[in-house]
Simulated scan of single mutants.
Amino acid sequence: MSQLFGEVAGAYHEARPGYPAEIVAAIRAYHGGTPDLLAEVGAGTGLATATLLGLGAPTVCVEPDPRMAAVLAARFPQVDVETAAFEEWTPPAGGVSALACAMAWHWLDPATRNRRAHDALRPDGTLAVFGHRYDYVDPAQRAAIRAAFESADPQRQADRPETWFRDDIAGSGLFTDVRASLYRRDLPLDTAAYLRLVATFSPQLRRPPALRERVLAALVATIDGFGGSVVLDLRTTLVLARRPA
C-alpha cells in the first residue's frame, strides 16, 4: 500500500492542493526558530515539501515509492531524497531536530510510527503531522456527490475522526505539549479538476478499472448538473508535539 500512489505520480502534484503558508510560521514558532535539520517522511512528490522549504532548514525527504521519489527529486534538487519506507529508514546520527509528515501518517505502521518518530528526533525536537480533509461548502453538493459515489460503488468508505492523528500522537504517551490547529479555505474546482483530484485518492486507485470509470461517469453527471463546478471546504489540520528533553 505504501506504493499505491506511484501509479499516478505524474498527475499527483498537479491534482492535489498544496498547504497553507501558515503551517511554516506555526512550526517555526513552536520549535523556537528554524530547525537545524528537518526530515519529511512519506514525502510523495513534494506537495508538502514545497511549503516546508519555507522553514529554510536543510531537509531530507523519505519516500518509499521510487516513482514518487523520482518526481520529488526532480522538482526539489536541493533536498536529500531517500527512497525507503519509514520503517526501514535510518535517521542521521544524532537524530533530526524536526520531523514532518503530511497526508501519510495513516500509511505508517500504527504499531511503531510514534516510537520511530520519537527515536528519530533529538531531545526537545518537534514533530509536525498535518493533512487535508475534504468537505463541501454547499450541503446540497455534498449530498449529491456522496450519492453519486454510492450509486457507482455502494461499498462505503469509512472516514477517520477529524482529530484521529492528534489522538494517536497524544495517546502514545511519547510526546509532550501536543497542539492542534485547523486552517480552512474554499477550493473551487471545475469538473475536470475535481476528477483529476478523485483519481489520486486511494479508494479510487484500489477500484478495478471498470469500476473507476463508473465512479467518474457518475461524478461527471452530478457536477455538470451543478453547472460544471464544485467548491470544496478544504480543512487542513496541523498537529505539533515535542520529544521530551
Rank of each mutant, 00 (worst) to 15 (best):
2 S>Y: 12
7 E>M: 08
8 V>T: 14
11 A>V: 08
17 P>L: 06
21 A>G: 14
29 A>E: 15
32 G>A: 06
33 G>A: 06
37 L>A: 14
38 L>R: 13
42 G>H: 03
45 T>K: 04
46 G>D: 01
50 A>K: 04
52 L>N: 09
52 L>I: 14
54 G>A: 04
56 G>E: 04
56 G>T: 12
59 T>M: 07
63 E>P: 11
64 P>Q: 10
64 P>G: 14
67 R>C: 01
70 A>N: 06
70 A>L: 05
71 V>Q: 15
72 L>C: 13
72 L>F: 09
74 A>N: 11
77 P>Y: 05
77 P>V: 06
86 F>H: 09
90 T>Q: 15
95 G>I: 07
97 S>N: 11
103 M>W: 00
105 W>G: 08
105 W>C: 08
108 L>I: 05
108 L>D: 04
121 L>V: 10
124 D>R: 02
125 G>L: 12
127 L>A: 14
128 A>Y: 01
128 A>G: 03
129 V>E: 04
131 G>M: 11
133 R>W: 01
134 Y>R: 10
136 Y>A: 07
136 Y>N: 09
136 Y>I: 10
139 P>L: 10
155 Q>S: 13
157 Q>C: 03
158 A>D: 13
159 D>K: 15
165 F>Y: 09
166 R>E: 01
167 D>K: 13
171 G>F: 09
172 S>T: 08
174 L>P: 09
176 T>D: 15
179 R>V: 15
181 S>N: 02
184 R>S: 06
189 L>W: 02
191 T>R: 10
195 L>M: 09
205 L>Y: 10
206 R>A: 08
207 R>Y: 00
219 L>K: 02
220 V>Q: 13
220 V>Y: 03
222 T>M: 11
225 G>R: 07
227 G>P: 03
230 V>N: 05
233 D>G: 03
233 D>Q: 07
235 R>A: 11
238 L>R: 00
239 V>E: 02
241 A>F: 03
243 R>V: 08
